[in-house]
């Protein structure tokens, strides 16, 4: 929706509609199935674009094959088939010499009784919860950027967006240095206030939080841009009317602005959760090998990587991947179920 709203705010006052519908697209995309299945039926009647082509359907099918074929074949080979194969692998055990045998549910049973999975799930959950704090933070920044008559908005936006275009591996390396316990600049800064830092990334109590803070820092700009686009669709007249009625800026923001941009908030939280549940790059590079705090930051994807590509235990890795899939599906379904309570589409 954001380009929608950005563009709309540039060209026409259409953005509220745009954000509503585009989030609708997301909604149906995530729900997948039913929507897609029914789509063309309705397209024929409801949309002006869905009319039958002028050409005979037989000829059109050959063109369609030409247009869809390459992507279809590529996706089938590199994505669809691998997903099915991973499902199969999760029921097998790979021997030391590469042969594999069917073991039924054994991988899942072992996995569920393995405390490492519980720990990884807990770590991932904590990481996800902390990174959700980035959403209100982005809302505040976006609201400030949207202040009437603010000069330098473009420059601010650019600077807040900078980490979004930066390679996560590079981000991780820089923050490793900042967090260093002996001579890191963070601890020296805290020292100015008489506080004593720790070795943030090797201390099991702080490592996960430290990484999550970097995750928030790195993703803030993207969320700010999305919220800013949503905010620009909030009609000024309404806010001015509320102002005349004596509502202060904070009240107006909480009771009027947030409900009006709730589709953006919903979208950002769905994407943040999906992204956080899959965090890997930051953990991998910031922690490094032999870090004593590793057990307290290993996320589900890290566990998957370790099982599949370091220990070469494909069966376990495949089972972990399916646990992750279920986790993401459950979280997404829950969010869609809850959205009725707080997301307002026009």
């Amino acid at each position: 929706m954001s380009q929608a709203s950005i563009q709309a705010s540039l060209d026409s006052p259409l953005s509220p509609a745009a954000s509503g519908t585009a989030d609708g697209a997301l909604r149906s995309a995530r729900r997948g199935g039913g929507a897609a299945h029914r789509a063309p039926l309705k397209a024929g009647s409801a949309s002006p674009n869905g009319r039958k082509g002028a050409k005979a359907p037989g000829q059109s099918a050959w063109w369609a094959l030409l247009f869809v074929g390459p992507t279809g074949i590529g996706l089938a080979i590199f994505y669809l088939w691998p997903a099915l194969r991973t499902f199969y692998l999760s029921f097998t055990h790979t021997g030391a010499f590469g042969g594999s045998s069917w073991v039924g549910l054994e991988n899942y049973q072992k996995l569920l009784s393995n405390p490492a999975l519980g720990q990884a799930l807990a770590n991932t959950a904590i990481y996800t919860l902390i990174s959700l704090l980035g959403i209100p933070l982005a809302m505040v920044v976006a609201a400030l950027l949207n202040t009437k008559g603010l000069k330098g908005r473009g420059i601010y936006r650019t600077l807040y967006f900078l980490p979004v275009v930066t390679m996560p591996a590079a981000v991780a390396i820089v923050w490793r240095m900042i967090y260093n316990g002996d001579y890191g600049v963070l601890n020296q800064f805290l020292g100015l206030f008489g506080a004593h830092g720790t070795s943030w990334l090797t201390n099991p109590n702080t490592a996960l939080v430290a990484i999550a803070v970097v995750g928030i820092w790195a993703g803030l700009g993207q969320n700010v841009v999305i919220f800013l686009a949503g905010l620009q669709g909030v009609p000024a007249e309404m806010l001015e009317a509320a102002e005349l009625d004596g509502a202060g800026p904070v009240r107006r923001f909480i009771h009027m602005v947030i409900p009006m941009i709730s589709p953006s908030v919903f979208f950002v939280s769905v994407m943040s959760i999906i992204g956080s549940l899959q965090v890997f790059d930051l953990v991998f590079v910031m922690m490094g090998q032999n870090n004593p705090a590793m057990p307290s930051v290993k996320t589900v994807v890290y566990l998957f990587y370790e099982a599949g590509f370091i220990n070469h235990d494909q069966g376990t890795a495949a089972a972990i991947a399916f646990v992750l899939l279920i986790l993401i599906l459950v979280m997404t379904v829950l969010q869609f179920a809850m959205q009725k309570k707080w997301v307002h589409y026009e």
């Binding site: 929608a4 609708g24 789509a39 409801a46 949309s47």
Partner: peptide
């Protein structure tokens, strides 16, 4: 049915 009618007309 969002997918049916083009979801992003204004976009």
């Amino acid at each position: 049915s969002e997918l049916a009618s083009p979801p992003v007309p204004a976009v």
